[in-house]
């Protein structure tokens, strides 16, 4: 207890006299940053989950060049990969809200009037577009031998996709997917521009409330770095497990 107090006294004195940052203020508002981190994590991982599930059938349709679907999905992925996420979010949030027909529709009050849903929809469609394209790439690079072997073994096309093509495509896509996860996390800061109190939103709130330049941003930055660190560790572990066959054999 005594040690804690003296540390606290030290921190207060340090903040007031020497430090360019006010650590006391940051400490006092840490709970808000944790709440913000929760919003950030929720949005990021829900978008990745839903977007990832959407991407699988779309990537299969693209890779197998299914007649009507392939061009439609191409237009969709092109539109969402070709425009900034900020613009997409603004279109869903401010754009749709301009139309009275939208405001009077049944979708307005539960979903489209809520910034959280607007942001989730925009993030999901965005990450689904990127994931579709690199999953398509991974499916298309399936070695011919694997396909021939599965045909020779009498597998139906569906069984082949489920047991051979997709699992191996996931493996090939795994290292690239960690980038997509991190980019989606970084992109989630856009939530703060439409009033959500995500990590950056809390940082900007703190800066705005106390007219500060750094404290809010520095704290948010440390939180993002911590989250990225955890994501990197998780992918390292996943690669160790799923890409075991690619490592040199030891002993």
């Amino acid at each position: 207890m005594e040690a804690e107090q003296s540390f606290w006294a030290y921190l207060s004195a340090f903040s007031e006299t020497q430090s360019p940052l006010d650590f006391v203020l940051i400490y006092d508002n840490l709970d808000k940053f944790f709440e913000g981190a929760l919003v950030t994590l929720q949005l990021t991982f829900l978008a990745l989950l839903i977007g990832g599930l959407m991407a699988i059938p779309m990537a299969l349709a693209r890779a197998n060049k299914i007649s009507v679907l392939n061009p439609i999905i191409w237009v969709y992925t092109y539109a969402f990969r070709g425009t900034p996420l900020l613009v997409q979010t603004y279109l869903f949030y401010f754009g749709l809200g301009q139309f009275e027909a939208v405001r009077e529709s049944f979708l307005w009050s539960p979903i489209l009037s809520d910034p959280w849903w607007c942001v989730l929809i925009a993030f999901t469609l965005n990450t689904a577009a990127y994931t579709t394209e690199f999953l398509r790439g991974a499916i298309e690079t399936t070695p011919r031998g694997e396909i021939e072997a599965s045909v020779a073994a009498g597998m139906s096309p569906w069984l082949r996709t489920r047991l051979i093509v997709l699992p191996n495509a996931f493996r090939r896509a795994l290292p690239a997917y960690s980038n997509e996860v991190i980019f989606t996390l970084h992109g989630s800061v856009i939530a703060s521009t439409v009033t959500l109190q995500d990590l950056l939103g809390v940082g900007r709130w703190l800066n705005g409330r106390y007219y500060l330049a750094y404290e809010g941003f520095v704290t948010a930055m440390l939180f993002y770095m911590a989250i990225v660190f955890l994501i990197t560790i998780a992918f390292k572990a996943a690669e160790k497990r799923f890409l075991r066959h690619l490592r040199p054999r030891v002993g």
Binding site: F94, G97, Q98, W108, S113, P115, T195, R204, G208, R209
Partner: peptide, 30 residues
């Protein structure tokens, strides 16, 4: 922001980057 946080702490405060966005959301009914 200071006024509302001080006098109406239980209100659901929404913070915007520009005043134009505030008006847009007031009209939109948010």
């Amino acid at each position: 922001q200071c006024y509302v946080e001080k006098h109406f702490p239980e209100a659901d405060l929404k913070l915007y980057n520009t005043q134009e966005d505030v008006f847009a959301d007031l009209v939109a009914g948010r």
